[in-house]
Design a protein around this nucleic acid. Structure first.
Lengths: 154, 154
DNA sequence: ATTACTGTGACGTGGCGTCAAAGTAG
DNA sequence: ACTACTTTGACGCCACGTCACAGTAA
């Protein structure tokens, strides 16, 4: 009631910005990964910028960690709980409960972190290997290219 | 005819070593990602160590790059062509043809390399973010834990 | 009224998981 | 004759892609 006018986006715009299809957005909603957005009178969905970021987060998790949507849902929920805690930061009677949530969030985050680190190491190894490979290939190619024994560079 | 006795593995052993199911191995074969292995009289498949490595390569490509099996097939085939070139390295009349193959192999390798680099950068960003997050969480948790204003370290 | 966008089904696809029923190895 | 392993179907599931057809926005 007291916020600035949010630029609401239709499903097509969100799809374009995030690089997923409309089908995917509806599917995520159906699966509980996106909270049902507000609608216009006719029933058209109206998304916010938050939703866009949410989708991007989901996609990163799929692409970088290849988690299932179920797993991603868990993580996203943990993430939300965390943001809520940050927002309503009044310390009431539920100190213990909040501590528990934080601990759970930390555990989940740590799990992700180890996955990320493992992937990172493997990817680095792969990267090094491919760079070596490229140099090798370049060597061979220029070897075949410069067929006259002595000319143009060594 | 003149090789050392290869220890041939049955599908179950391959499955165990590679961490995929037997179903997956048969599926890869069906899709042309693994060449049909030799069989015993009864029809049981007999794999080689090469096959094991092949499967591991396929899995890395799925897990790290999440490519489709079709894409992986392309890459694996290019990789094979390359190894063949390395093996039969007699320089005959087909110098030009071989050069072309090398160039194709280089192009494919380079494509892969850019994909790997992009993923690497994104993963590094994610990793940094998560480490920050963890520190933040730890701070908050120990904040709630040590409820008495002044005690045990800051 | 027209054109572009969106709504909800419903069926298809890729990459396997998971039985089931029958054959093989040792 | 047993037991453990393997064979080929066939159906199921997830994460969407792809129509089809009707309704909505401007």
């Amino acid at each position: 009631v007291a916020a600035q006018q949010r630029a609401e986006l239709q499903i097509g715009e969100v799809a374009e910005r995030t690089g997923v299809t409309q089908r995917t957005l509806r599917f995520y909603e159906e699966k509980g990964l996106l909270k049902p957005p507000t609608r216009m009178e006719g029933g058209f969905r109206l998304y916010t910028e938050e939703d866009v970021q949410r989708v991007e987060q989901i996609r990163r998790m799929q692409n970088l960690l290849n988690l299932s949507l179920a797993e991603i849902k868990e993580m996203v929920e943990a993430d939300e709980a965390l943001q809520q805690i940050r927002a309503e930061y009044r310390r009431d009677a539920e100190v213990e409960q909040r501590r528990q949530q934080l601990i759970r969030a930390r555990a989940i985050t740590e799990q992700q972190h180890t996955i990320v680190r493992q992937k990172l190491e493997q990817l680095q190894a792969m990267n090094d290997q491919m760079e070596k490979r490229l140099q090798q290939l370049d060597g061979w190619i220029s070897n075949l290219e410069t067929r006259r024994p002595a000319e143009a560079a060594r």
